[in-house]
């Protein structure tokens, strides 16, 4: 082989290895800034005790086939409390259409959750993530954050911050089961 050709090949190989490494590093760096649980991913399964119904638990896996809205909230979060009535308003209607709404509180105290829940007369399932493990698995910042999960268990939409009634209804429409 001609020396010059060989040199060109060697140079090309070395430069491509270096450039590919750079691209790899940029990719890893970029993906580490992305949320752990993103739109399109499968929603991590969890199982929590229901606070509103004695002795019952909710496991996400069991809700497959239904559209699920997961709402992470806390009593010390004002915007969370403001969107609760909207969820309640739409709950019965969409429950009949095959959608479940689960409010996951990250408070440390059952009392404060139930106190708020009862005062507002809410009706959707309320669960308590006392140890914060579900919150960690979903990498929640900030509160409130809502996940709209398709009937097949994939995440359709992640909404950070409070919802309005119209937006909430629009997002619930997106995860309606087809039947």
């Amino acid at each position: 082989m001609h020396k010059k050709k060989k040199r060109l090949i060697i140079r090309t190989v070395i430069l491509s290895v270096l450039v590919l490494t750079l691209i790899g590093v940029l990719y890893v760096n970029f993906s580490s800034e992305q949320p752990v649980v993103a739109e399109g991913d499968e929603a991590p399964n969890f199982k929590l005790k229901r606070l509103d119904v004695e002795g019952e638990t909710i496991e996400l896996k069991d809700l497959e086939g239904k559209g699920v809205m997961l709402n992470f909230w806390a009593t010390y979060c004002e915007p969370c409390k403001e969107e609760m009535p909207y969820m309640n308003e739409l709950y019965q209607e969409y429950k009949d259409k095959g959608i479940e709404i689960v409010a996951i509180s990250v408070d440390s105290n059952e009392f404060v959750i139930n106190n708020f829940y009862n005062k507002l007369g809410l009706s959707f399932p309320s669960v308590h993530d006392k140890k914060g493990t579900v919150m960690e698995a979903y990498d929640i910042v900030p509160l409130p954050t809502s996940f709209f999960v398709n009937p097949d268990g994939t995440i359709e939409r992640v909404v950070k911050g409070a919802l309005t009634l119209e937006r909430l209804e629009g997002y619930l429409q997106e995860i309606l089961p087809t039947n």
């Binding site: 009593t75 010390y76 990250v106 105290n109 404060v112």
Partner: peptide, 22 residues
């Protein structure tokens, strides 16, 4: 009877509330 509990008490224009769970 415990009527209300605010872990970290503050007073806002809506009355007493808590701004953290601690």
């Amino acid at each position: 009877r415990v009527d209300d509990y605010y872990p970290q008490l503050e007073f806002t224009d809506k009355g007493p509330s808590s701004f953290s769970k601690f």
